[in-house]
Amino acid sequence: MTGAEQAWLTVALGAVTTFAIRGFGPVTMGGRTLGRRAARVLTLLPAALLSALVVTETVMRDGTLDVDARVGGLAVAALLIWRRASVIWVVIGAAAATAVLRLLF
């Protein structure tokens, strides 16, 4: 399968599953609620996944450790988040810091 075919297949399957996940509660009329434990697992999932993505996308590349300018960019992002900046500035600040570090070193 080519990269383009993989991308289209991911889009198709991603769209179908997203539609089903969003539609399930409304179609079953809601009313029912998840068990407390199941609800806790669902609330904890984003923390586990987002953290995994932040770290691998910051210090890894192609399956190996690769510490580069992105680390500086993420430090700036963390500072901006701590200063309660809007997500717009967090994203722009991280990109700008990474770009400047690449220009300098």
Binding site: L53, V54, V90, V91, A95, A99
Partner: peptide, 12 residues
């Protein structure tokens, strides 16, 4: 620095 945007957004 576009490759820093993904992880920065996720961090937020």
């Amino acid at each position: 620095g576009i490759d820093a945007v993904f992880p920065a957004f996720f961090l937020a």
